[in-house]
């Protein structure tokens, strides 16, 4: 087994003076997927941001490989056509078209601001798929997705894991496929 793509040891998270969790150990090897569950406000999103390195842990250490993040924000330029906006983040163009195809987004020429909620969510996931990061961090990935799109996401995650990638997803609803569950208490 090669080195872990994400290794958290004894991590504590302090937000706004409140201790969300402490002593958290979490390791993600290539091919693994972890589903973080827990009630609203228990620190699922904070855990994702800690894993991404956008928050500093109050205690503990975090080591990570290059990662791609899909949180509640789209991070695509609103005035640009979807294809161009994704190209900005993708290492090369062929990856953008593959990602658009994987999420069945036949909208490369449509400006980002005209996308519907579900399309925006799929565009966000396409941005992650188009990146060459081995670690995917997904915060509530199925929000606003219909059943068919959830299937597309499951398929994309399956392909990514087969290629040696790892996924850390936070979601309060069940996700398809085989996941290791990590529960956060409130």
């Amino acid at each position: 087994m090669s080195a872990a793509l994400l290794a958290m040891e004894g991590v504590a998270c302090l937000r706004g003076g409140r201790l969300l969790f402490e002593g958290l150990d979490l390791a993600l090897a290539p091919g693994e997927a972890v589903h973080v569950i827990g009630p609203n406000g228990c620190g699922k999103s904070s855990l994702i941001r800690l894993a991404a390195g956008l928050l500093e842990p109050a205690a503990g250490t975090i080591a990570r490989a290059a990662c791609a993040l899909a949180d509640e924000r789209l991070a695509l330029d609103r005035e640009m056509p979807l294809g161009k906006a994704l190209d900005f983040w993708a290492p090369d163009r062929s990856r953008t078209s593959d990602a658009l195809e994987a999420m069945e987004l036949d909208l490369a020429a449509v400006p980002v601001r005209l996308l519907s909620t579900g399309q925006r969510q799929r565009a966000k996931l396409a941005r992650v798929i188009a990146s060459d990061a081995r670690l995917w961090l997904l915060d509530e990935p199925v929000n606003g997705l219909d059943a068919r799109s959830v299937g597309l996401l499951d398929a994309a995650i399956g392909t990514h894991r087969e290629a040696g990638g790892a996924v850390l997803a936070a979601s309060h609803v069940p996700l398809g496929g085989k996941w290791r569950r990590q529960e956060l208490a409130s």
Binding site: A52, G53, L54, C67, A68, L69, D71, R73, L74, A75, W89, A133
Partner: peptide, 8 residues
Amino acid sequence: GVLDQLAL
């Protein structure tokens, strides 16, 4: 979230 994505 563009600044976060750039940081990543």
